[in-house]
Nucleic acid binder design. Structure first.
Length: 524
RNA sequence: GUCCCCAUCGUCUAGACGGCCUAGGACACAGCCCUUUCAAGGCUGCAACACGGGUUCGAAUCCCGUUGGGGACGCCA
């Protein structure tokens, strides 16, 4: 990354224009200028010069996802990543992944891996990155120094104790706690090597208008803001400084992020202006809540994207669910990633926070399990079978299993669990299922055993016929015989249709399990 | 507490210009049908414009207020 080159002249007022969410992008502003030029004959040359004078303004839409590596990829983070990604893909732009690891204490390489893994699993590819802020400290220091030199920032020698006391006093007065500007005008240092932080000299008056793509125009008074720290006592830069510098350097045109950053925006715009840069366009998407209406967190259960993978959710389902959480396109519920790219409109994102609903996610997951190519599902399922200690190559074709199980599983974990008996014998009947293994049933099963043994073609059709025959023979209805048979073969009361189940379990295993069940009934 | 944001069925939402809304869809739930279990599927049902004022011939849609919820107020991001 080069030095901080402003992409345009400082236009502090440019944030104040346009009064609606309709503002599309920089391109539109340029367009207007050009049209104006054409109709304005006399001033044409001057106006044209103005356009050309703007050194370089990236016309390409560039969005970014900038997580801090202090944990796993959260579903909320995944959603803002998705929205940013969709926006870039929709508008022919570029999507950048930036790791905000300026807090060296909390950032961990494991978290970085978790984030990259999550992004990869979801299929959110990036055109640049991951870019690590920790690699750019020298550059941040230059910027901080420049701000200091220009008097746009100052050294603050206040002790933490003093700050705490000020805050406590303000809270007691029921005022908003903030820095009181004690060192704002100080020119000397209290002592030779006195420790200090660097604070940004925020304007004292005036109004900042954030023209947000999802929230519309939001205004803030500068006198509500305080002078925030941009460099810690050890000299390291803080978040507010690094986001701004990076967004400028990386040519980010649209900042799509969580709602919790809306209040940070005016301060960042002030820093942006101090650096002579034009603010990007902002879009603050609402947060995701837990069922109790509180911000979604680990205590609500699964929040890590990889945990959903672990439980057997498909990336297609999670992506679809996340997109529909806040965004909509009429009544449509199911979207492929490609469709989302085609239809996504950030201005259609809802302003209100949404509650995460696992039930609906599960429904979508099952929808995808049922509709995606069985071969594809089989590949995912294979991994889950393996985790349960089963090698799927040692039994029926997994694709066949998927086809008979996909209508009765919400997750692949569930499907794997319910498919174990196709690959290995079970050692006990499910609690309550043995009640189907009565002495009467035993007699029928005994008879069925010999008929099945004589069966030459082991197919669902032939098996079905055999069961029918035996049922008729012993004077039972099909279902009456099917249920004890099911318990005998699967150890449980539910399974795919019994004939297909038997076919997949295989003749040998079927006969063996039947014998065992018959033996069991003789003891009842 | 201060500032900012938000407010349609239990949940996600549709609702461009106010009349097409006796508010639509989906999940969940209930019932019925189908049925060899469990599902899946089909049909039906339950269920909401937070409240109060305006503006208007007419408001879920516009304005104000109230209430409620969320967020920010870190040498975290």
């Amino acid at each position: 990354m080069g030095s901080l080159a402003p992409y345009a002249r400082a236009e502090p007022d440019s944030v104040h224009n346009d009064d609606s969410r309709s503002r599309k992008a920089n391109t539109r502003q340029l367009f207007l200028t050009i049209i104006f030029t054409i109709i304005d004959g006399n001033k044409q040359r001057i106006s044209l010069f103005r356009i050309l004078a703007v050194p370089f303004r990236p016309m390409t839409t560039r969005t970014r996802f900038a997580p801090s590596p202090t944990g796993y990829l959260h579903v909320g983070g995944a959603r803002t990543a998705l929205f940013s990604w969709l926006y870039a893909r929709r508008h022919g732009g570029e999507f950048i992944l930036r790791i905000e690891d300026t807090d060296r204490q909390r950032s961990t390489p494991e978290s970085v891996d978790a984030i990259l893994e999550g992004m990869a699993w979801l299929g959110l590819d990036y055109d640049e990155g991951p870019i690590f802020q920790s690699d750019r400290f020298d550059h941040y220091h230059e910027v901080i120094q420049r701000l200091l030199d220009e008097g746009k920032a100052y050294r603050c020698y206040c002790s933490r104790e003093r700050i705490d006391a000020v805050r406590a006093e303000q809270m007691a007065r029921k005022a908003k706690p903030r820095y009181d500007g004690h060192c704002r005008h100080r020119t000397d240092a209290p002592s030779e090597n006195a420790p200090y932080v660097v604070r940004f000299r925020n304007p004292l008056s005036g109004e900042i208008l954030v023209d947000d793509l999802v929230r519309g125009a939001v205004s803030f008074q500068n006198d509500e803001l305080d002078d925030l720290i941009i460099a810690r006592v050890d000299g390291s830069p803080t978040y507010h400084l690094t986001v701004v510098v990076d967004d400028i350097d990386m040519g980010i045109t649209h900042v799509i992020r969580g709602d919790d950053h809306l209040n940070n925006t005016p301060r960042q715009i002030n820093i942006l202006s101090a650096l002579g840069a034009t603010p990007p366009i902002y879009a603050h998407v609402p947060m995701i809540m837990g069922p109790d209406g509180q911000r979604l967190s680990k205590r609500h259960g699964a929040v890590s994207v990889m945990q959903y993978r672990q439980e057997g959710y498909l990336p297609e389902a999670l992506l679809n669910y996340l997109a529909r959480l806040g965004w909509s396109h009429g009544d449509q519920e199911v979207f492929s990633l490609d469709e989302m790219v085609e239809l996504f409109d950030i201005t259609n994102v809802n302003r209100a926070a949404a509650t995460f609903d696992t039930e609906k996610l599960s429904w979508l997951n099952q929808h995808y399990i049922k509709n995606i190519e069985p071969m594809h599902i089989a590949r995912y399922l294979s991994r889950h079978m393996g985790q349960l200690g089963v090698d799927p190559s040692e039994g029926p074709d997994l694709v066949e299993v998927v086809m008979v199980q996909r209508e009765r599983a919400k997750t692949l974990g569930e499907m794997a669990n319910n498919s174990l008996y196709f690959y290995k014998d079970f050692d006990r009947f499910d609690a309550g299922s043995e009640k189907h293994l009565t002495r009467d049933a035993g007699n029928a099963l005994q008879k069925l055993h010999s008929h099945l043994m004589a069966l030459e073609e082991w197919s669902a059709t032939r098996i079905h016929e055999t069961i029918m025959d035996v049922a008729e023979d012993v004077g039972m209805k099909f279902g009456k015989l099917a249920q004890p048979l099911r318990v005998a073969i699967t150890g449980r009361t539910f399974s795919p249709p019994i004939d297909i189940t038997l076919e997949l379990v295989g003749k040998n295993q079927t006969l063996r399990r039947l014998e065992r069940a018959v033996e069991y009934t003789s003891g009842t």
